[in-house]
Amino acid sequence: MSTEPTGTGTGQDPGHCHDGVCITCSDTAVEVTIIAVHELEMATVDTGQGAEEVSIALVNASVGDTILVHAGEAIGVVGANETSAQEG
């Protein structure tokens, strides 16, 4: 996900987001860790470069979990059904 402080609607160029990755579908699985859960299924997450608020309405996740966030919405929990992907 983007780690830029976006969403302010200022009309400034977002600079194509973190790591040159598309803001639209945030293809790089950068770990985002939940540091606080709020009411209305929102959460504050640590992006590694700052804190952001995202929705966790679509996942079963709690503080300490690493989640995959697309466009402000968590759609998966990273490592939840982890098996080795490096066997090659």
Binding site: S2, E4, T6, G7, G9, Q12, I23, S55, A71, G72
Partner: peptide
């Protein structure tokens, strides 16, 4: 026309 990161930001506006 403003840039946002998420539809939630749009709702906030």
């Amino acid at each position: 026309i403003r840039m946002v990161y998420s539809p939630l930001d749009s709702l906030k506006i």
